[in-house]
Design a protein around this nucleic acid. Structure first.
Length: 132
DNA sequence: GCCAACGTTGGC
DNA sequence: GCCAACGTTGGC
């Protein structure tokens, strides 16, 4: 069982959309590293739903359901999409600025590589963040 | 809106 | 293979 973090701008797909839909295909990823992470996701894995750009924060939790499949939205190239299911909103939201400064999170992909839209979160980081 | 970081493209 | 130019992401 692994843990992940997936990013979305609220203008394209928000946690509210996710809640309303119940589940969605996480598609449109066009970065190799992020794609490779999508391929590594296994059914049952959990992921943080991260809101980028506008008030950046971890705003929810989703669960991976099913394996990566071909991304139907890609016109060319080898891209994949993975289905995720809404689990819950995280209230209060965990603001990006509140994640900074902890030695426990120094190595977190989100903080070290801010442009990566699908990243792994290790179990210690996952637990630490949930206990904030 | 600005800009840093990063990724991609294409000339050489 | 190197690197400049350009495009995109995303924090601030």
């Amino acid at each position: 069982m692994k843990y992940w973090l997936i990013k979305s701008e609220p203008s394209s797909y928000s946690i509210e959309d996710m809640e309303k839909d119940g589940f969605t295909m996480w598609d449109g990823v066009r970065n190799y590293q992020a794609r490779n992470n999508l391929k590594l996701m296994k059914s049952g894995d959990l992921a943080f739903f991260y809101r980028s750009v506008k008030k950046p924060a971890i705003v929810g939790m989703v669960k991976v359901i099913g394996e990566a499949v071909e991304d139907e939205t890609a016109k060319e190239g080898d891209w994949v999409a993975t289905k995720v299911e809404f689990v819950k909103k995280l209230l209060p939201e965990i603001q990006l600025k509140d994640l900074k400064g902890f030695s426990e999170l120094e190595e977190m992909r989100l903080l070290k590589q801010s442009r990566l839209s699908v990243s792994e979160v290790d179990e210690k980081e996952w637990e630490f963040i949930l206990n904030l």
